[in-house]
Design a binder for these strands. Sequence first.
DNA 1: TAATAGATATAACATCTGCTATAATGTGTG
DNA 2: CACACATTATAGCAGATGTTATATCTATTA
Lengths: 73, 73
Amino acid sequence: MSDNFSEFVKEVRLQLEMSQEDLARELGVSFATINRWENRKTTPSRLARNQFDTFCKDMRKTGKLNRSGADNE
Amino acid sequence: MSDNFSEFVKEVRLQLEMSQEDLARELGVSFATINRWENRKTTPSRLARNQFDTFCKDMRKTGKLNRSGADNE
DNA sequence: TAATAGATATAACATCTGCTATAATGTGTG
DNA sequence: CACACATTATAGCAGATGTTATATCTATTA
C-alpha cells in the first residue's frame, strides 16, 4: 500500500471494533487526529506512524487483527 | 519536576553521551525538536513526551541511566 | 414520531514538528 | 595559529496535532 492509508486505518479500527476515541487513546493522540487520517485531511507524523504500525503489529501478534495489509507502506 | 524539562532532557542526553542527533534518532523525531526542547523553544507533544519517557525508563532498566529525575513531571 | 445519547465530521486557532539553511561554537590536528 | 570537522543554536515555512466548538448521523427508547 501507499495511498490508501486513510482506508487502512478505518479498516483496522473497525476490525477491532473501536471508536475513533478508543484508537486515539491507544496511540496516545487525540481523536481529531484519527478522524483527520480517515478523512484524508492529514497524513500521520513520523512518530504517529511508528506508533500506529507498532499497534497493528501487536494486534496481529495477539490474533486480534488479521494479516490483510500487513505489508502496508 | 514540572518546569525543568529542558534541563532534564539535556541531563539525560549528556549522561548517555549522545548528541542531539543521536537522541533524536532514538526517539524518532528530528534533531531540531530535541534542540528546541533543550532551549525552551517548545514543549514536547503528547506522543513525543511518551516516547521520551519510555526511552528514559528503558535506559534506567538497563542501567545506562541513573535514577535522578525518575519521577519527572 | 420525538427525544436522547453516542459516534463521527468539520472548522478555527494556537502550538509543535520536519525540513532546510545558516551561523555560531566547540574540538581536535596539522 | 590555521584549518577542517562535528555539534549546537537559530530561523522560516509548510504541514501535523491538540483543543474546543458545532453539526450531522445512527441507534435506541419512550
